[in-house]
Simulated scan of single mutants.
Amino acid sequence: MPFIELDGVEKTFTIRRRTGLLRREKREVRAVDGISFAVERGEMVGYIGPNGAGKSTTIKMLTGILTPSGGRLRVAGIDPSRERTRLAQRIGVVFGQRTTLWWDLPLKDSYRLTHRMYRIPDARYEENLARCVDLLDLGDLLDVPVRQLSLGQRMRGDIAAALLHDPEVLYLDEPTIGLDVVSKARVREFLKDLNATRGTTVLLTTHDLTDIEQLCSRVMVIDHGRLMYDGELAGLHAVGESERLLVVDLERELPPITNVPGARFVRSDGPRQWLAFPATASAAPLVAAVASRHPLLDLSVREPDIEAVIAKMYGGTREDRRESLR
């Protein structure tokens, strides 16, 4: 049996707004519209889509925070909305925009409270805490009140708090938001190790495609509350015809670089030029071709923005967009 299973799950909200002095208008908004998918134990799955697509609503239903309006949902054989307390012992959750840490307490005191709340055996707690502190570089932050932590530091602290009780599944909603490049790499390596050594199932929502590329073998795209794509990331790029950008800094201003096979000149600004190439292609041949023909100072590769990928995939009506993925 799949570890996570959704079958025709819906979530509808009723919105009321004032239309006059004494009149109010009521309408229903379908945030999740008949989603079905299954996740096996130990999978790492990316769950992506534009803002307002229904990603966070799905995760809140998976944790039991919200009750589905329709359909069937199970996590480890448990109905989250009916057995939320029982399920809490088996899941970990990190919401990038919200913290589960106690604002005015030092980080270590938040962890001690988590220790008591989940009734974690002392030896297991100490082992898990030491591992998280080491891998997430939290040693110098344990005595710092949470309100004094930067967003990136707090995110690492939240990830550690979510893992102290050894959850079987970890829901991550924008876990690398606000992190610098080094911290992002540390968190990604930590999640890879967690999945490889403990078999933790991970459902990841993010706007950073690099997170998906480095962590997930499978990606699901949700748009307007419907599941639009479920498969490998390479297939998503192929369907969306997404492009990466090669940013080239030349020694001096030169005519547009148009003689590199597989690349398309986009624009230039003085000695800097932007070349686009398919996201499914390797950057190495382009880099070699540019370096052999032009005087370089520096270059970098920019990944496609997930909003742009989805916008390009879904340029027509909703039915047109669904048809394009069949």
Rank of each mutant, 00 (worst) to 15 (best):
M44E: 03
I78M: 05
K55L: 13
R82S: 08
K11M: 07
P68M: 00
R72V: 00
M61G: 05
R24V: 12
R16Y: 09
I65V: 13
F37D: 09
R74Q: 05
E83R: 15
L21G: 07
F37H: 08
G20I: 11
D79P: 04
G52S: 15
M61Q: 06
L21C: 01
T57K: 07
L21K: 08
T63R: 01
G49V: 03
K26W: 07
I59A: 05
Y47I: 04
G8Y: 01
V9A: 04
T57V: 08
D79G: 05
L22A: 06
G8K: 04
T14V: 14
T63E: 01
E83M: 09
G70I: 01
I65K: 00
L73G: 00
M44Y: 07
K55H: 14
G8C: 01
T19P: 08
F13Q: 05
G34R: 04
V75N: 04
Q89T: 15
G42N: 12
M44H: 01
M44D: 05
T58D: 06
E28W: 04
T14H: 10
T67D: 00
R84N: 10
Y47N: 13
K60W: 02
R86Q: 15
S69G: 02
R16N: 12
T14I: 14
L66F: 04
R84P: 05
T63V: 04
P80Q: 09
R23A: 14
R23L: 09
R23N: 09
R24W: 15
R90Q: 14
R17P: 03
T14M: 08
G42M: 10
T58V: 08
R27Q: 09
T12V: 15
S36P: 09
R86C: 10
R17D: 13
T85F: 13
I78D: 01
